[in-house]
C-alpha cells in the first residue's frame, strides 16, 4: 500500500515520526516534493480564499499526492500539550482539504492528541488498523517512530556572525524556503546569524508565558512569545524577526504580546502572502540589518549593499 504524506505545515517538525511509522508498518511512503511553483499554484487554486498561505500550500501538497498513493495522511493535530491547542485551522484541516479537492484517495483524518505517548498511540492504532495491521505490529512501528522523532533535531543556532537575530514564527513559515522566499539564506547573506525556538528549553518557554495575565490558549503563542522574550532578556540575540503569514489569527495575538513585552527591543514583522516579488521583503530585512548595525556599533559606517 502506498501512503502519501504531504510536505506541508508541521511536516517540517514531525516527519521522522510520520515517515518511520508508516514505513515500519510496511507501507510504501510517498512524500510530496518540496514546495515549488506547481504545488504553490495548485494550493492557491483549490483552497478557499480566506485561508492562510501555509494552509493553501498544504492543499497543493495533497493535490500533488492524490494520484500517487492509496491513502493520504492529513494530520489533524489538536493538541501537543495539555490545556492548549495548536491553531483552529489544524482542527478543521481535513474537512477543508476533502471538500476543496476532488478525486482524493481515502484519508487518515483522526484527531491527534499528542499530550502523552498514550494519547498519541490511540491515533497510531486507528491509523494502523486502517492499513490492516494488528496491535503488535502497530506497537513496534509506533516505538520506532517515537525513537526516530526523539533522535531528530531541528532548529538553527548560527555562530560566527557579528549580529544575531531570533527568527520566530510558525515552523512551516520559517522552514519552507519557497513560501518565505529563502528567508534563512537571505538573512545569513546579509551577515546576520539566526537562532530559532528549538534551542530554548520547553520549561524556559513555559516560564516566560507564565508571566502573562492568562495562560495562552494556543501552543504557538506560548512557544513564540516565550522564545522571543527569553532571547531578548538573556541577550542571546540583537533583534527579532517574526515571519508571519497574512491573515494569521494566532500571530495577531503573539505579535502584540511580544511588542508589549519588549517595547524597546528591535522587532521586525515580515508578512508573507502569495507575493513572489522579493523587493519588499529585501528592503525590510536590509533596513533592519542597517538599524541593528548602527545601534550596536554606533558608527557612521553604512554597509554599501542592501
Amino acid at each position: 500500500m502506498k501512503v502519501g504524506i504531504p510536505k506541508g505545515l508541521l511536516y517540517c517538525k514531525y516527519h521522522p515520526f510520520l515517515v518511520t511509522f508508516f514505513g515500519e508498518l510496511g507501507a510504501e511512503v510517498i512524500v510530496s516534493e518540496d514546495t515549488n511553483k506547481n504545488i504553490f499554484d495548485a494550493g492557491i487554486k483549490y483552497c478557499v480564499d480566506d485561508a492562510c498561505l501555509p494552509v493553501k500550500i498544504f492543499h497543493g501538497h495533497v493535490n500533488f499526492l492524490k494520484d500517487k498513493c492509496d491513502l493520504v495522511v492529513i494530520p489533524r493535530i489538536m493538541q501537543l500539550w495539555k490545556n492548549e491547542y495548536i491553531c483552529p485551522k489544524f482542527c478543521g484541516l481535513p474537512e477543508m482539504v476533502l471538500n476543496n479537492l476532488n478525486g482524493l484517495p481515502p484519508a487518515i483524518t483522526d484527531p491527534i492528541y499528542a499530550t502523552s505517548w498514550k494519547n498519541l498511540y490511540s491515533w497510531a492504532q486507528k491509523s494502523g488498523n486502517l492499513l490492516g495491521k494488528n496491535n503488535r505490529q502497530i506497537k513496534v512501528a509506533f516505538n520506532k517512530a517515537i525513537e526516530a522523532q526523539k533522535n531528530h533535531k531541528t532548529g538553527i543556532d548560527d555562530e560566527g556572525y557579528e549580529i544575531k537575530i531570533a527568527l520566530t514564527g510558525h515552523p512551516y513559515n520559517i522552514y519552507d524556503k519557497f513560501l518565505n522566499m529563502n528567508l534563512v539564506k537571505k538573512i545569513n547573506n546579509l551577515g546576520m546569524g539566526i537562532r530559532t525556538a528549538e534551542f530554548t528549553q520547553e520549561d524556559i518557554l513555559a516560564r516566560e508565558a507564565d508571566n502573562l495575565y492568562k495562560r495562552p490558549f494556543w501552543t504557538f503563542v506560548r512557544e513564540n512569545y516565550g522564545f522571543a522574550l527569553n532571547s531578548a532578556k538573556e541577550k542571546k540575540v540583537d533583534g527579532i524577526i517574526y515571519v508571519s503569514s497574512f491573515n494569521c489569527g494566532t500571530d495577531s495575538v503573539i505579535i502584540e504580546l511580544i511588542k508589549n513585552g519588549l517595547p524597546d527591543f528591535p522587532f521586525l514583522i515580515l508578512k508573507i502572502d502569495e507575493h513572489t516579488g522579493e523587493a519588499g521583503i529585501n528592503t525590510r530585512i536590509e533596513a533592519f540589518r542597517d538599524m541593528l548595525e548602527r545601534r550596536l556599533f554606533n558608527e557612521s559606517h553604512i554597509s554599501t549593499l542592501g
Binding site: 519588499g280 529585501n282 528592503t283 536590509e286 533596513a287 542597517d290 538599524m291 553604512i302 554599501t304 542592501g306
Partner: peptide, 25 residues
Amino acid sequence: GSGRMIASAIMGADAVKNEITAHAR
C-alpha cells in the same frame, strides 16, 4: 528604491541601499 538592483546593474553603483536607510540619511 525597489528597482535599486536593476539600476545598479545598468549604471554601476558604489552603494545599493534600501529606502529606509537612504531616507533617514
